[in-house]
Amino acid sequence: MSRKLTLWLAAGLISAAALSGCAGQTSEDGANQAQEEEGFNPRGQILALSCASCHGTDGESVGIIPGFFGKSSTYLENALLDFKNERRYSTVMGRHAKGYSDDEIKLIAEYFGWVSQQTTSN
């Protein structure tokens, strides 16, 4: 990781630490702790929030673009990997899926799997 990027991330940590009055927590620790407390990974959430713009809030589509609310994490992970690796035809989805590592795709799939379990309607 570059120095400047580390600084940006560290800066976020300082802001948060100043507010909470606690320090010494790394970004990764924070993410893991949050997952234990909240049931979701904050990184997965950040990665997943954009999807709703085309697929509807929580993946509940109101238009012709397919929704995915209620699908399992495994289903979503496989679908995204298929789009990424061009095993499944798409107009624009493949262009998006290529923007994420396989690990990130797993996090996105896990987040929406978790959302579907939490929410009966958004």
Partner: peptide, 9 residues
């Protein structure tokens, strides 16, 4: 919440 924001995507 006094927590660290995740890197943006």
């Amino acid at each position: 919440q006094g927590k660290v924001p995740a890197p943006p995507s």
